[in-house]
Design a protein around this nucleic acid. Structure first.
Lengths: 333, 333
DNA sequence: ATGAAAGCGCTAACAG
DNA sequence: CTGTTAGCGCTTTCAT
């Protein structure tokens, strides 16, 4: 029924080995016989069976990608970066959502390894010890993208979250604010607890501003949480005049909450965000935001993976991409 | 090095066949020997090789997913629906972006078929004859998700775009508007040209409103295009007082354009959108929008695919999901 | 430059 | 209930 390498070998009066050679671009084939084989392939519409090839060669040219949630733009941006580079190097991608659930992550790693992927790109907001151990001992290379492994002994690509956050908070401090709120997603996520929040505390301390736990809110990283945060924070005794938001949605929630209460941004309150998705330009005022270059992180992570898979030398497996702050109108200059 | 089924067979003093049986949950195994095998599997950390299995069984339990662009929320929503159902039925997904480029679509179909996927879910805004022919003759089932095949002889899941659009335009007409603009993405996309635009024309005709080609703008479906559209339309002689926008971004672009010009929505102009992504709630005024249920479309498409793959009877391979209009504040009641 | 043959790791009859 | 035996379609030495 389906045509195999054997069929074209027979039709072309050569051996399977020769057909295999032309299919794989091996140079040790006389041009005339290559031509003959190619013709038969075309005529018979032969399509190599990648599964058989994978079994024989022990390479599948597919890599696994595990991300928390593809429907979240943060991750889908990264996924696009990963996929583009994968395509460039002729890999396909098996994509799966973990919902940031350790058990799913482990199951997913297992089924992907079972499918004999040649490597894995993983995004996880919380690399547990168990996960770390599994990744460390996996039979194929795994690189973390936009995900922090505190022991730093797994290949990964990130930006300097601490420094970026610190700079953002400083902008607020420099504009004279003493009451600065900190909003982020769950502190169970390493980036939030160990970098954004720590940077916030350090920045305030360095400026001799007292830390008020009331001003620190960690919830879901969503628009509605932003609105809620505004509601609770605007009602306290000495409400904040500036906000550091861990994501664009959070920032927009705050802004809309404030505007619905008749406040003006940035005149009455200032807001800086950490993400810079395309949403940042789709609000009024447009968001000033730390740029979190997800596409690049994904792309670089995949590129790193291709290098490791092909056993190229890589100087540094822990890469830190540069960051910047995109100035727009949600804070004063 | 890696442990195979043969290793566990030897260690457990049974045949490969028996190991295969317990791994595959075949009931014809004495509980005691099942237990023994399971123990060895655990001890040796045996992990079945899905590639070998795929070669032998001719099933890979992976399906291909071809979408225009995963970083676009429209498609990533659908991808999530597809993946969730795939996971539920124990399939993995090979995901690839086509950028809505026919050549890439064809290449992708080919490499996925080469990888022996058990089926494919495809999203394409323009199913060309060539593509249609290839899909029609593919060796595995293919279902279209949120994509229209005019000949209607491929399995697909959609909503009634014409009817939904017609109802949206009618809302505008019922609010007394005579100058209604139509905005959408490229007319090369079937949904835009054959359904949204046709519905627009029909609705106007049915209401005896003259069609003014000036009011019909088809560009990229982006925020910036929305703003531009506002700029050009607000400058014409008898400018529109209501807008039908083919996507949320387009709608938001128009609203911001209008607001930047000092207009109020919906007092001065009314806008209805077609998408209802989470963005719809993240603008002021919030968007009234036709709900395009991408997640459901993806999920139902995948479910349909599982049925076809397992040769279940399916009453109708062309499914039309119900639609609704989500009322918010961008049009008056 | 080309062919022969031995697997890759597993499933699936077929026996028993 | 369990074992034997062919393959699945291709890559890869090893010869020639």
């Amino acid at each position: 029924m389906t045509v195999t390498i054997y069929d074209v070998a027979r039709e072309a009066n050569v051996s399977m080995a020769t057909v295999s050679r032309v299919v794989n671009g091996n140079q040790n084939v006389k041009p005339s016989t290559r031509k003959k084989v190619l013709e038969v392939i075309e005529r018979l519409e032969y399509r190599p069976n990648a599964v058989a090839r994978g079994l024989a060669s022990k390479k599948t040219t597919t890599v696994g990608v595990i991300i928390p949630d593809i429907s979240n733009s943060i991750y889908s941006e990264a996924a696009r970066g990963i996929e583009d580079i994968a395509t460039m190097y002729n890999y396909n991608i098996i994509l799966a959502n973990s919902d940031q659930n350790e058990e799913k992550e482990i199951t997913l790693l297992d089924t992907m390894l079972g499918k004999q992927v040649d490597g894995i790109v993983m995004m996880s907001d919380s690399v547990t010890d168990k996960l770390h151990h599994i990744m460390k001992h996996a039979p194929v290379p795994i690189v973390l993208a936009g995900s922090v492994d505190e022991s730093n002994d797994l290949p990964s690509v990130n930006i300097d979250y601490f420094q970026a956050s610190y700079e953002a908070i400083q902008l607020l401090i420099n504009n004279g604010h003493k009451r600065i709120a900190f909003l982020s997603g769950p502190l169970a996520y390493t980036i939030n607890s160990k970098y954004k929040l720590e940077a916030y505390k350090k920045a305030l301390q360095d400026a001799n501003i007292e830390i008020d736990e009331q001003l620190i809110i960690s919830e879901e990283s969503s628009y509605d949480s932003g609105i809620e945060a505004w509601e609770t924070l605007s009602a306290i005794e000495n409400p904040p005049t500036a906000f550091f938001a861990g994501s664009d949605e959070l920032a927009i929630g705050i802004i809309h909450g404030a505007q619905d209460d008749g406040k003006n941004v940035p005149e009455d309150i200032e807001v800086i965000s950490f993400e810079n998705s395309k949403l940042a330009r789709m609000v009024r005022p447009r968001l000033t935001s730390v740029a979190f270059p997800l596409y690049d992180i994904g792309a670089v992570a995949m590129r790193l993976l291709t290098k490791i898979m092909s056993k190229e030398k890589v100087e540094d497996k822990v890469v830190i991409l540069p960051h910047r702050i995109e100035s727009r109108q949600s804070i004063k200059l």
